[in-house]
Design a protein around this nucleic acid. Structure first.
Lengths: 265, 265
DNA sequence: GAGTGGTCTAGACCACTGT
DNA sequence: CAGTGGTCTAGACCACTCC
C-alpha cells in the first residue's frame, strides 16, 4: 500500500462513513472547524478533503449554511423508443395527442403538472450547423429554446434547444409562433403539418461537467455531471430536418437505448 | 458584472491566451512561482487557478517537470452499430475475425496497437443481477474484468466488466480461461461457440463524476465526468445472456445511437 | 448577530523529473 | 543537482444563510 496524503485518508474515512450509513443522506456534517479539530489538520487540508467528496457528488456544501450528505436522486428514464412512440402519435387527432408528449411519457406526469416555456428566434446558420443541415452557411434557422419543469420540482429536467430551417417550417405559419406551444404531440406532429415524415434519428452524447450557468439553471452543484445530447432528425429521404441540443442533469437522468440485431442467415 | 475571484480572473486570462493561440498546444507555461509574481498573488491562489484549467482539461501538470498546454483530446466515437457489426463477424473464420474487435473499430487502431488484459473470476449473483438474468440469487457467474489501452496512450479508454452465467458458458471450457483472451471477434464470437445468437441489446447510460479510484485508473482529473454504461445482451429467445458494465472517460468518448423509425402506413 | 463556508496570504518542506 | 510541482500549516478576513 502506498502512503496516501492526509486529505485522501480523511476523504476515505468520510466516504466509508457515508457508505456504511454512519452518515446518512441529508444529514449535516459538523462544521469544517470541528472536523479540522477532529482530524488534527489545518483548515485548508480539511477543506480539500471535503472538496474531493463534493466533486464526487457525495456531499453538498451550501455557503453559509452547512455541509450535507447528498441524497441519491431518482433518475428519470429517457428511453429512445420515445421517438417511435412520438411518431405514431403525430398523426392522431388533436384530442388524442393532447397531454401525451415524450417528456410526459418519460416522467409519468401529465401536461397539467408541467410548466412549459418556449422562446422562438431566428438565427443564421453557423458553418458547423449549415454543414449538418446541408444548406449554405448563413441560411435562416428557427431557433426554439425550451424549458420544461415539473410543477413539483424547483428546477427543470433539462435545457433544450431546437433548430429548424426557417424556410422549410414557414410553410405553416402557425409553427413560427411560440404562442402555439406547447404543441401536443411534439415536433413530429408539427412536422406532419408540413408533410414531413421522419425516417431516422441520430443521437450523439457527451458527458461533461456543467458550466456555471447550466449548474445554476438545472439546480445542480458543480460536482455533478451533465449529459450533452444532440439529436439529429432525418426525414424519409435522408435530409436533416432538425438539430436539437439538450443538456440533462446527470444525477436525475438515465438514458436507455434498445438495439435490435438482424438475424443470422 | 459581478466581482470575480482572483483565481477566476487569472484562469480567464490564461484561458483566453490558450484560445487566442498566444499559448500553444504542447507549450510549457512558466513555473508557478513566476506566474505568482506576474499576477501578484499567493502561490496557493495561483495554483488554484491552474487547477481549474487542469480540471477543464486545458492544461496538464507534470509533477517535477512543468505545466503544459494540453493538446485537444480526440473523442473516440462509440457507435451502437458496433453491435450489429460485431454480430456479422462472429461467425467468420478466425483469420478474418483477427484484429477486428469492436474497440479496434471505434479507435481505428489494430490489435497490435492495443494492450489488452483480462482477469476472470467466479462470483455468486447478487439479488439485482439475478433478477436481470432471470436466475436464482447466488447462481454462479463468470466475471471478466477488462482493460484495453492504446499503446500510444498512458491510460485505458475505459474500465470494463462482463458477467455471464457460469453454467451456460461452461459448455465450452475454452471460454473459462482468460489465457484465451483476447478472443478475436469479441463476446458474440465466444457465444457463437456455444450456439448462442444475440437478438437484442439494451444500453443504459448514466453520467456521473468519477470515483477517486476511477479517476486514477483512467488518468482523468476528478473534474471530468464519466459515462457509466450497462449493456444487457438478450439472445434471440429474449433470455439475458450477458451484463456488461463499462466506465468511459467523459472527455475522450462520444456515444452515438441511430434509431430507425417505422414508416407511417 | 451567530454560525457557516469561501477566499487569500506567506512561508516551510516534500516528491518528482531530467541532466 | 537544480528546477519543478505537491502538500501542509496558522491565521486573517469576506460572504452567505438563517433566526
Amino acid at each position: 500500500m502506498t502512503m496516501a496524503t492526509k486529505y485522501d485518508r480523511i476523504a476515505d474515512d468520510l466516504r466509508e462513513q457515508i457508505a456504511q450509513g454512519t452518515l446518512r443522506p441529508g444529514q449535516q456534517l459538523p462544521p469544517e472547524t470541528a472536523l479540522r479539530d477532529r482530524y488534527r489538520v489545518s483548515l485548508v487540508t480539511m477543506r480539500r478533503a471535503l472538496d474531493e467528496l463534493a466533486a464526487e457528488g457525495l456531499i453538498e456544501k451550501r455557503h453559509g449554511y452547512g455541509t450535507f450528505v447528498r441524497k441519491p436522486r431518482q433518475r428519470v428514464v429517457r428511453d429512445a423508443s420515445r421517438h417511435q412512440w412520438e411518431k405514431e402519435r403525430a398523426r392522431l387527432p388533436h384530442a388524442e395527442r393532447f397531454g401525451t408528449g415524450a417528456t410526459e411519457r418519460d416522467t409519468g406526469l401529465e401536461m397539467k403538472d408541467l410548466d412549459f416555456r418556449a422562446d422562438y428566434s431566428v438565427t443564421p446558420a453557423s458553418e458547423d450547423l449549415a454543414e449538418i443541415f446541408g444548406v449554405p452557411a448563413g441560411t435562416k434557422l428557427l431557433k426554439r429554446v425550451y424549458r420544461t419543469k415539473p410543477k413539483s420540482e424547483e428546477y427543470p429536467l433539462g435545457l433544450g434547444q431546437s433548430l429548424l430551417v426557417y424556410d422549410v417550417v414557414a410553410e405553416n405559419p402557425h409553427l413560427l409562433d411560440s404562442a402555439n406551444e406547447p404543441w401536443p404531440g411534439g415536433t413530429q406532429a408539427q412536422l406532419y403539418t408540413i408533410g414531413i415524415e421522419l425516417g431516422r434519428i441520430r443521437e450523439q452524447i457527451i458527458a461533461r461537467p456543467p458550466s456555471a450557468s447550466e449548474a445554476e439553471q438545472l439546480g445542480i452543484d458543480s460536482g455533478v455531471s451533465v449529459f450533452d445530447l444532440r439529436k439529429i432528425s432525418y426525414d424519409i429521404n435522408g435530409r436533416v430536418v432538425e438539430i436539437a441540443d439538450t443538456v440533462l442533469a446527470g444525477d436525475r437522468t438515465q438514458l436507455v437505448y434498445n438495439i435490435e440485431l438482424d438475424r443470422w442467415q
